[in-house]
Design a protein around this nucleic acid. Structure first.
Length: 487
RNA sequence: GGUCUCGUGGCCGAGCGGCUAGGCACCGGUCUGCAAAACCGUAUACUCCGGUUCGAAUCCGGACGAGACCUCCA
């Protein structure tokens, strides 16, 4: 197989890998659906954000000037499984007996903490729905003017039948409206809609609504899908390069975004639609409604009953990137432990490289290795293959360290720089900081010296007593060639 | 029920017509006072049944199994 020289990515619109050609050369506009702040994002949500963070990092690595927009949903009515329009943030506010803004603020702070914990690069803009009510109203007005929506009793609905005269509906999710009709379960509370597939753009205020905005149609709330259309248009234009989100948003959310964008501006908002797959627990999608979810914080604190010990955020991130973003990933303790070991091997390999000194000749091609890693990234952001390349490098590092391989000065510095860049900048994992404090380090120095003295005197009983005692205290001794380490 | 996706060695997971993916575990070896760790190495696989092909884990058809979506979801 010849290595890709240019970026190819899988476009959900066509169902194929396509060469990536940005609208403006050298620049990429990317919009990713962010969290709804009515609760703390769970680990499944984090997987999607980690995957798109990796994709963002890859695009930066390729040299694109990227404008990355990820929204924060802090308002909006969604239609629940009973067919009722509900305000999830308002419900959370009622439940916790606080103002909706307090809910949003509280979970936004937590989300920002999580982004730092999992080393997510901040998007260029994180717009909120509530700050863009006016823009949403303007898009709705445009859709009305184009004849693809109607007003009914203070609410505005998207008119799918009128829209179908000019545009297809359901292309992204591969659905046909006539098929949808008899597949859709019977819904109540939709008498206002003229057609079952119509969806709310604006919902008239209900007596118990905690958040209400003024509009040309009276007081109310924006629909769930319209914020993305308004904000993506404002910050990226009527059409931009990449739209991302979780697989489960394909229908109806992204389908309706396409309809809104076509209905107002006559074009699909994005040229490439990317969908990240789900995180599974016990073979089933992690979901609030299944009750099989845990929080990104619980896994690093070790407070989730699913896991017997804590895992560093970097290890969790590394674990997630060992699967391709388009595949489902099963999280189990066994798999996580495997990643943890691999992660440590990678980190130790990298620090070992610092001790390697250059030779006159090079015994392997750093350039070839670099190309191999590069083509993995160019092939639809293939993180698992990138990681396989990193382990290939680790193998070479050990060979270098033992004198079984050589690199000249130029190649060695290229090797070091590329490896560090791919690991820390592109993959976005960080070494785990040594948690030991200075006083402990001082004590350990004395203990290690005592044990070394005992060993020199072949006093194995004392030596092993120290080792076993420390093991009980959770400190492991490693007798290496160049002295003993602990951790 | 409809639409779609997927079934890879003990586990996770790439590949998607011919070339060792990778990690972890296992086993063997090196090192070591012993152990652990570390390093090196071998082995193990493509759900089943047909078809296409010189050649199929990879393409086509069927069976079985799993999952996702079908107005809560990343």
């Amino acid at each position: 197989m010849t290595p890709n020289k240019s970026l190819h990515l899988y476009n959900s619109l066509s169902g194929k890998k396509e060469p990536f050609v940005p609208i403006h050369e050298g620049r990429v506009g990317m919009y990713v659906c962010g969290p709804t702040l009515y609760s703390e994002p769970h680990m499944g949500n984090m997987r999607t954000f980690i995957n798109f963070d990796f994709i963002y990092r890859c695009l930066l690595h390729f040299g694109y000037q990227v404008k990355y927009v990820r929204n924060i949903t802090d308002a909006g009515h969604i239609t629940n499984s009973a067919g009722q329009e509900v305000d999830s943030i308002g419900s959370a506010a009622r439940l916790e007996q606080v103002q909706p803004l307090e809910i949003v603020y509280k979970y936004n702070v937590k989300f920002q903490e999580l982004q730092r914990l999992y080393n997510l690069l901040p998007p260029n803009i994180e717009p909120t729905a509530t700050a863009h009510i006016q823009e949403q109203i303007e898009v709705i007005e445009q859709i009305l003017e184009n004849g693809f929506a109607y007003v009914e009793n203070g609410s505005v609905y998207f008119d799918v039948k009128a829209y179908l005269q000019h545009f297809p509906y359901g292309e992204l999710s591969g659905r046909k409206v006539e098929e949808l009709e008899h597949e859709t379960r019977a819904l109540n509370a939709q008498e206002e809609k003229r057609f079952f597939a119509d969806f709310a753009l604006w919902k008239k205020a209900q007596p118990d609504d905690m958040q209400v905005w003024r509009s040309p149609w009276g007081n109310g709330n924006p629909g769930w899908h319209i914020e993305c259309t308004a904000m993506s248009t404002k910050y990226l234009g009527k059409q931009f390069d990449i739209h991302g989100g979780g697989m489960d948003l394909k229908f109806p959310h992204h389908e309706d975004e396409i309809a809104q964008n076509c209905g107002s501006f006559g074009c699909n908002p994005a040229r490439y639609w990317l969908h990240a797959n789900m995180l599974n627990v016990n073979g089933q999608k992690m979901s609030k409604s299944f009750g099989n979810y845990f929080l990104p914080k619980e896994i690093v604190e070790g407070s989730s009953p699913l896991f017997s010990k804590p895992y560093a955020a970097s290890v969790v991130r590394f674990f997630m990137l060992q699967a391709h973003y388009r595949s489902t990933l099963d999280i189990t303790e066994e798999a996580l432990n495997a990643s943890e070991k691999g992660f440590e091997r990678l980190m130790e390999g990298l620090s070992l490289l610092d001790k390697v000194s250059p030779s006159k000749e090079s015994s392997f091609s750093v350039e070839d290795w670099k190309q191999s890693a590069e083509s993995a990234l160019l092939d639809d952001f293939n993180a698992p293959i990138l990681i396989a390349n990193l382990f290939e490098a680790v193998k070479q590092i050990h060979a270098l360290n033992e004198g079984k391989a050589q690199l000249n000065e130029t190649d060695l510095s290229l090797f070091k720089a590329t490896l560090a860049h791919l690991t820390f900048e592109v993959l976005g994992i960080e070494p785990i900081e040594n948690q030991g404090n200075d006083r402990l380090a001082g004590v350990m120095e004395v203990v290690m010296a005592l044990r070394q003295k005992a060993r020199e005197q072949k006093d194995w009983a004392s030596s092993d007593m120290i080792r076993d005692g420390l093991a009980k205290a959770g400190i492991q001794i490693k007798d290496g060639k160049e002295g003993t380490t602990w951790g």
